[in-house]
Structures are given as structure tokens and as C-alpha cells.
């Protein structure tokens, strides 16, 4: 008695299934490509200077933020620019008990003795899109943008307070 080996046979149902799956993949790919936002046109706009404010920095850390340091994005690691100026002013504490002077209610403020608001000026090469909005290494350069500030020995969240473009001289 001979035993016949049953071969796997490619049948019509298998063919239909494969065609359906390929069709689904093709439709999904088409939808994804058409729905994906067209990347904005960017051009190199040259040098930009922007100021960031780092709030409530301990006095002991002030020396860690220096002119000439390279600033990186602490999340992505991308280089954001180079520090060209550092200014500090004492951070302020706002009281919770109002003071009345000449009928006007005001909030008392006091300087912290050991905390500072640090204003760092950074220069960088920026790109500008068709809307006129500048970006540096993916960070949008507008007032209020969050910058994940990192220099060799110091990291903090900071916010852009000012920016200006410089035409090449």
C-alpha cells in the first residue's frame, strides 16, 4: 500500500484572501500618504538671536551658565546655539497677604536672597518656513516657546522672551 503525501495546494480562497489583504494595505498606504501633512517649505534664514529666561536658579548654579557654552535641547540632544550673553536678576517672591496703600490693594514682593532669574542670549542658525516662523533644530522660535535648556553642567526648562534676526554682515 502506497501512502500518498498530501501536498498543500494553493486554492482560490487563498488567492482571494491575499488579494483582499493587498487591497487593504494599498488603501491604507494611500490614505496615510494623502492625509499626512505636507511638510512646510523651509529656507535657511541665517543667524537668529533669542533670549530665554530660566526662573529661580540657585545662586550656586549661576557659574554653570557661561558665555561661549553650547546649548542643547535636553530632550532631543540637538544643538540649539551658543551663549553670547548672560544676565541675572534676583527672583521675586509674591506675598499672599495684601497690602493697602492709599486705598489701593497691592501684592507685596520680596527678592529671594539665593535664587535668580537668568536671561540667556543664544545665537544660532535658523530656518524659516513659508509663514515666516523661525525654527532652530525643530524648536519654534516665538515668544513663550519652551526651550529644554542644557549646557554641559546644567539643565532646566526655559522660555523664550525675545528674538531677533540678524542679517549677515
Amino acid at each position: 500500500m502506497l501512502q500518498q503525501r498530501k501536498k498543500a495546494r494553493f486554492n482560490l480562497v487563498d488567492a482571494l484572501i491575499i488579494i483582499f489583504i493587498l487591497a487593504v494595505i494599498a488603501v491604507a498606504a494611500y490614505l496615510l500618504l494623502s492625509v499626512l501633512r505636507q511638510p512646510r517649505t523651509v529656507s535657511n534664514s541665517g543667524q537668529i538671536e533669542f533670549d530665554v529666561r530660566i526662573s529661580n536658579v540657585d545662586e550656586s548654579c549661576l557659574s554653570l551658565i557661561k558665555n561661549g557654552d553650547t546649548v542643547k535641547d535636553s530632550v532631543t540632544g540637538a544643538v540649539l546655539g551658543t551663549i553670547v550673553d548672560v544676565q541675572t536678576e534676583k527672583a521675586q517672591y509674591y506675598g499672599t497677604v495684601a497690602v493697602e496703600e492709599d486705598g489701593v490693594i497691592t501684592v507685596p514682593t520680596t527678592d529671594y536672597t539665593d535664587k535668580y532669574d537668568v536671561y540667556v542670549k543664544i545665537t544660532a542658525n535658523a530656518e524659516k518656513d513659508e509663514r515666516g516662523i523661525h525654527t532652530v533644530a525643530g524648536t519654534r522660535i516665538v515668544i513663550g516657546s519652551t526651550v529644554y535648556f542644557k549646557v554641559p553642567s546644567f539643565t532646566s526648562i526655559s522660555y523664550i522672551t525675545e528674538f531677533s534676526t540678524r542679517t549677515p554682515g
Binding site: 497677604v97 493697602e100 490693594i105
Partner: peptide
């Protein structure tokens, strides 16, 4: 606008300094 306490402990509205 901020809500702060006056000398009597009552909540009053004041302008934030900055």
C-alpha cells in the same frame, strides 16, 4: 488679577505686580 488675603483674613482681588 490675584486673590489674596487682606489683614483681616478676607479674600480680596489685587493686581499681580508683573
Amino acid at each position: 488679577k490675584l486673590l489674596v488675603e487682606d489683614a483681616g483674613g478676607k479674600l480680596v482681588e489685587a493686581d499681580h505686580p508683573t
